[in-house]
Design a protein around this nucleic acid. Structure first.
Length: 703
DNA sequence: GAGCCTCGAGTTCC
DNA sequence: CTCGAGGCTC
């Protein structure tokens, strides 16, 4: 008899994983390579489910060749997936000097460093290539992974081994060292490559970055080897021992290990020096021989970096100062309206194709009605109030070097008979009224699920990578399946194999792009996702105002589906204990609470939900298991003046240890941390018998 | 009630 | 990546 996963001790879990990994591997080989399964699908599924459940509960026991790392993928992308031990984050951006000053101010505020006191940074060119994480164990390169979405990348080890700048072995480094940097191609090598491509009648690369990315992601590492790729190291991920105490010294160590590091890396003692170095690099830009798109600034002291920590997607201690974007002129040929999953009507400009920053751009977002009219949401003029019309000549650029945007309109070239663009009052997809609520910027189609555009977009969201992530069922497939009447709502996805059985396999096979293999894969992917973590389910429903992050908050708070759904039902009148509890969750306000509760209460959405959940086994979610933390789940109130750290820092730290930080003392408060000057809150805490700690006591508690 | 910060939703191109 | 809106802090 198996023990419930939830009741396993860590030792038991470890032993069981050791048993499950080879069993699953053997079954995999038997199934895929010998084509003769040795265990039934049901048995295999049960093993795998148990494996994943154990792994989910004890993430640090994750086995190197865990089956969870092999789910789907290999055939679709050709590369296996790699979960980064330390996430590869993106950077915040600065577009002008003012943004750089604000960056410095923010950091000083957070760390409580007065303006007079020196705070040094490193500054280095931001290479326009693709980031790569190299893992060294005992000095040997064991794995190279692309950034991917930051959490999970692709395993490109074979290809990385062919890049000359990447050492295969290093000495003097910590036992485990993940080196991060940028793979890029020089202008000369890029030009030569395109000459060769032309000679071989292969397609040309648009720019060096695409060429580098294309070269590194070759399935045949023999091809990668012929491409002149280079690598600059500038950061690190997992480390078994610290490299240094400052960013600059750590980079020096990377150089000593044998990595190329950028020669224009400089330590600056203030923002003035940062900007000076920025202009210096900008002046040298054209002579470097490789593409850069800005300069990266990082707080030099690694201890301070650690204190600053991370926001959801970016570190607080670094920023990318971008060069001004390249501009181009073109004509707006048409303005079309797209309908999103929430019914939002978004205008998109169809442009006469034009090259901007090495890429041909033919569409640009126009955001909303006001943006076209030349106003921002406060009615303030943008583009000096010039509106955008079909037929206008406009300047476009790629915001952050990615998203095309319309910068300005050339009124002098406007046709005499041109008329202002009239924003539609009806949904172009279903003809329902489009309503713009008072005080809102977007118009929304009122058709709900009657509107095919909304229905399809909701389905796309449901299957998307961050929601149900059903391999083999992407946006394209959802569109055809919807058009064919196969899938109208999420529940239909799970009845697909049942309703059509082998017949649907036959139908799928007859479709273009579908073979027996991919059809089987799709059905097994669907089956696999009948086990779904609560947070992914909540997010996948696509309830307005409930995104990935809020879904996680809710899942952690309620833990299980029965808990969550009954609370939503009980709160249906927007009152009562469950309603109050919902509103009391940190990050949930009245708007989100109403959206959630109404979703469960409204007949249509509720019925679709009931149809869906009967196919699912919803996995419980627990708050982050913060090993050794003594404050998990505790509610902390900080009051008075904190002397060692700032308020923001204390809050971030407490939350990272699984505590909830609140502003006022109540019976639910567990600990009040009181600095000098604490008054009424301290008194109230004492009255309520809540534990009161000094700042020093708090620090030793969490040490 | 204003002002910050974070998140959600929508978007492009390879 | 950007903008707008929601949530929280001051």
């Amino acid at each position: 008899m198996e023990i419930e996963v939830d009741l396993l001790t860590k030792e038991q879990a470890k032993a069981e994983l050791q048993r499950l990994v080879p069993a699953l591997a053997a079954a995999d080989i038997a199934y895929h390579q010998k084509d003769s399964p040795e265990i039934s699908d049901a048995e295999y599924d049960a093993l795998k489910r148990r494996y994943l459940a154990i792994e989910a509960r004890f993430p640090d026991l994750k086995h190197e060749d865990s089956p969870s790392q092999k789910v789907g993928a290999p055939v679709a992308s050709g590369f296996s997936k790699v979960k980064h031990a330390v996430a590869m984050m993106s950077l915040g951006n600065a577009f002008d000097d003012e943004d750089v000053f604000e960056f410095d101010d923010r950091i000083r505020k957070f760390l409580n460093i007065p303006a007079g006191k020196s705070l040094s940074y490193t500054a280095e060119p931001k290479i326009d290539g693709l980031s790569l994480s190299l893992r060294y164990e005992s000095g040997r390169l064991v794995q190279a992974a692309t950034r991917g979405d930051g959490e999970t990348g692709e395993n490109v080890t074979e290809n990385a081994l062919t890049v000359r700048d990447i050492p295969k072995e290093i000495s003097g480094a910590p036992e485990v060292l993940e080196v991060r940097g940028e793979v890029y191609m020089s202008h000369d090598d890029f030009a030569q490559l395109n000459v060769d491509q032309l000679a071989n009648e292969d397609k040309l690369f648009a720019n060096p970055r695409n060429a580098a990315a294309g070269s590194l992601r070759q399935l045949d590492s023999g091809i990668t080897k012929t491409r002149a790729l280079h690598f600059f190291a500038y950061a690190w991920g997992e480390l078994s021992a610290p490299l240094a105490t400052t960013q600059a010294a750590a980079i020096d160590h990377l150089t000593e290990f044998g990595f190329s590091t950028n020669p224009l890396t400089k330590t600056c003692v203030n923002t003035g020096e940062l900007l000076e170095h920025f202009r210096d690099i900008e002046a040298k830009r054209a002579l470097l021989g490789y593409d850069i798109d800005g300069v990266v600034y990082k707080v030099n002291d690694l201890g301070l970096q650690e204190r600053l920590g991370y926001r959801t997607n970016t570190p607080r201690w670094a920023i990318a100062h971008k060069f001004p974007a390249e501009m181009a002129s073109t004509v707006i040929e048409d303005i079309e309206i797209q309908v999103g999953r929430t019914g939002a009507l978004s205008p998109v400009a169809r442009l006469k194709p034009v090259t901007v920053g090495g890429v041909v751009v033919s569409n640009a977002t126009l955001h909303n009605e006001d943006y076209i009219a030349g106003r921002d949401s406060n009615g303030q003029p943008i583009r000096e109030g010039r509106d955008i019309r079909i037929g206008d000549w406009v300047t476009v650029y790629r915001a952050g070097d990615v998203i095309p945007k319309v910068k300005d309109v050339d009124i002098s070239r406007r046709a005499k008979d041109s008329k202002p663009y009239e924003f539609p009052k009806k949904c172009p997809e279903c003809g329902s009224d489009a309503i713009r609520e008072e005080g809102e910027a977007v118009s929304r189609c009122t058709g709900g699920l009657i509107c095919p555009a909304q229905a399809v977009e909701k389905l796309k969201h449901f299957v998307s990578r961050t929601a149900f992530n059903i391999e083999g069922l992407g946006a394209k497939q959802v569109e055809t399946f919807y058009a064919d009447g196969w899938v109208q709502e999420p529940a239909d996805i799970f009845t697909l194999p049942v309703r059509y059985g082998d017949g649907s396999l036959q139908q799928l096979k007859n479709r273009e792009g579908w073979g027996a293999k991919s059809a089987e894969k799709l059905f097994s992917a669907i089956k696999e996702r009948q086990n779904i973590p609560l947070n992914r389910l909540i997010f996948g429903l696509g309830i307005r105002h409930v995104g990935e992050s809020s879904a996680m908050t809710l899942a952690r708070h309620y833990g299980s589906w029965p808990n969550f759904s009954s609370a939503m039902e009980n709160a249906r009148d927007h009152s009562g204990a469950d309603w109050d509890a919902l509103n009391a969750i940190d990050g949930v306000g009245a708007v989100m609470a109403a959206a959630l509760v109404d979703y469960f209460h409204q007949e249509q959405t509720r019925a679709a939900l009931d149809r869906l959940v009967q196919h699912l086994r919803i996995e419980t979610v627990r708050p982050p298991s913060v090993e050794g933390s003594k404050v998990v789940g505790k509610t902390i109130v900080f009051t008075g003046t904190l002397e060692k750290v700032t308020r923001a820092e204390a809050k971030a730290k407490a939350e990272s240890l699984g505590a909830k930080v609140s502003g006022s003392v109540s019976a639910k408060t567990d600990i009040v941390v009181a600095g000098p000057g604490a008054g009424s809150k301290r008194k109230k805490a004492e009255e309520l018998g809540v534990e009161v700690l000094s700042e020093d006591e708090w620090i030793s508690l969490i040490a």
